[in-house]
Design a protein around this nucleic acid. Structure first.
Lengths: 375, 375
DNA sequence: TACGTGTGCTGAACCGTTACGGTCAGGGGA
DNA sequence: TCCCCTGACCGTAACGGTTCAGCACACGTA
């Protein structure tokens, strides 16, 4: 009575769990060990007995060893937990996060491990999901410093890898990219093009909702390390050319969307019409800035230079000048750090390179007397 | 000695698991039940005792109840397993799959459940990952009929929801969209525009690699229900207008990429230059067909009408005429069917509607005497 | 004959927790 | 005084496996 899916179960056997390894052993008059071996170590018993066991299992509707019980005994779950503090759906919408996820999934797949997405957005006040996760280790992605879910992860006595965050805790490895160096290279590029009046659009620096111009203090207090580093890289680069960071306006947006990027660029330029370049700390924001420029009829890069960060496919396609970071490799590395760990003791840290992608949205700075008010 | 992440653990406590609920109870001279209650039912003990327990836990580095042991006892894992037969990374690259995933993740998140991605590509010959998954139920997405991983899922005595597949197995719910009706509506649209010579580009019909023209037999033997249904819908629609399905060439591609769509459309039209419309069974393929048309200098829809299926954002943006299916809702529904199940007995089936999106890639059929050889 | 050697199977300990059904002391009402 | 109730805590029995150290027995080997 198999249906087209090769499924021959009756309803009752799907609803109750009648058989266990023990009951099967009793039925057959063999030890539990033997039944266990029939599944896990076929070489430990004769072919006849093994077929007899499996045959009886099928007859009694025994679905094979219970994974949870097995996990309890073997102390491994064959799964990796992924902690993101954003809503899970964010991970599927943000291109950079998606690339990371893809790389991580690849690494897990190669190792035959599952990937458990842990619900840990701000909505989840309790840490239950973290405490409950049956995993062999954690990957922590893009989480603000001091995040309680992250703290809960560190509480668990499991190997952990954090991405995009400075980290020096025993038992916790790290993967990141050279955000600072990348942004610095971008600064050099802009300086070489003659830009001196530069503004910045950046992502969320803290957990509390805020949209507007950011002072130095807030920049330093940023809990998102990636943003902090990118700003720092730009500052370093500009400093060498004698551009005072205090003169560089930074516009923050809580949401990470094109709309936010457009509005941020608009607000930035209305306050600072003298700017010749808008540096965005992500491609998504930069695409928004480009859209704004298009709407306002500003020529890019004639009137305004726009740059991004990440190197997501949409941005590359749009010809954005940006810093490409190897997001997939970052995800894969995170997985590998977690899964390939030997009997290592001191924390490892992998830093991946970034690369300047010179697109068509950066060009020579327009002359100093042309301000946006006059465009 | 807390670091900036609020982490005060020493290395040894991260490496070994020294304390258990039992050892903690012994240390305190209380019963294990009491320690358990301190975590799970605060109302069952006095505040003083509870603080004493938690205090001791912190002191001894007890990380709280072990999730696996708890799962074994409570018979629940607070996680949903997702089975895709494709490589996991496929899920992150295919826009329709991504939408499904997003919806499903949302549903899981709302219910405080984790989402476990199970590695089950063709590379994984053994079903270990399915057997090992510590989950409370499965969602099965886009899996060919007769897939062994799917069979393994059905073996497990857990509630299951399948997406996009006819299903009538007790304990297994189903969600799908009206693929057939959608394609039929598209057929009506094309017929109204005067198209009679129509060709099809479709996705993989079987597991074995094949690229080329498909005969009727292969169409019927398709193991991917979605593809079968879409073809059937088109056939139904055309039949009403007297178009013989035997005269409709169908070009199959194993890979699901724009490149594949372009090559399929090219091959199709070189065999059948009389066609006035190319119906693709997915937007990704259709975008490829559009690209091919652009490369060849064919006007769309002047020379050729191109249609898709799915309604992915890229396609909508490109103005493709397509059938939109609510992918996110489908994912969310799958999650809800799994998580909201009461003491239900008979399988439920939810069918979501599709909607014709008339874009700018479909227009009146060009006159019958103009063939592509003459373009 | 005594001595390894290997095959096939078993018994018992253990994994760390929670469910279930209690006990026990103290208090309040009749 | 008796009885019942409530709050606080406890003991036992699972939950369903894996693992390891044997053990019996057959089979060559010296």
């Amino acid at each position: 009575m198999l249906n087209r899916y090769g499924q021959g179960m009756t309803r009752s056997s799907r609803v109750r769990r009648p058989a266990t390894l023990a009951s099967l052993a009793a039925e057959l008059g063999v030890s539990r060990t033997t039944v266990s071996n029939a599944y896990n170590r076929p070489d430990q018993l004769s072919v006849q007995l093994r077929t007899r066991v499996l045959e009886a299992a099928r007859r009694l509707g025994y679905p094979g060893p219970d994974p949870v019980a097995r996990s309890l005994r073997t102390r491994r779950a064959r799964a990796v937990g992924l902690l993101l503090t954003e809503e899970l759906s964010f991970a599927f919408r943000d291109p950079a996060a998606l690339g990371f996820l893809e790389g991580l999934a690849q690494a897990c797949e190669s190792a035959g491990q599952g990937l458990l997405l842990i619900p840990a957005s701000a909505r989840h006040a309790d840490m239950a999901a973290v405490h409950q996760a049956s995993v062999d280790g954690f990957v922590v992605y893009s989480v603000p410093e001091g995040d309680p879910h992250f703290a809960a992860v560190l509480q668990r006595p499991l190997p952990t890898v954090v991405a995009d965050q400075p980290m020096n805790t025993p038992g916790v490895d790290r993967v990141g990219v050279d955000d600072r160096g990348g942004m610095r290279a971008l600064a050099d590029h802009l300086l070489a093009l003659g830009h001196r009046r530069i503004g910045v659009v950046c992502m969320r620096l803290r957990n509390s909702r805020f949209d507007g111009l950011v002072d130095i203090e807030r920049q330093h207090g940023a809990v998102f390390a990636v943003q902090r580093e990118r700003l720092a890289g730009l500052r370093d680069g500009l400093a060498e050319a004698g551009v005072d960071w205090a003169d560089v306006p930074v516009m923050e947006r809580f949401e990470h969307t094109e709309e936010a990027g457009a509005s941020a660029a608009g607000e930035l330029l209305s306050h600072h019409p003298e700017l010749t370049a808008v540096v965005c700390t992500s491609d998504v924001l930069a695409l928004g800035a480009l859209r704004l420029a298009a709407e306002r009829g500003w020529a890019v890069p004639g009137d305004l230079t726009v740059t991004g960060f990440d190197g997501i496919p949409e941005a590359i396609r749009a010809g954005l000048t940006t810093i490409r970071q190897p997001v997939r490799a970052k995800g894969r590395t995170a997985g590998e750090l977690l899964l390939d760990r030997g009997e290592r003791t001191e924390p490892r840290s992998v830093e991946l390179p970034t690369e300047l992608v010179t697109g068509s949205t950066s060009g020579p700075a327009r002359s100093a007397d042309r301000w946006f008010s006059g465009l």
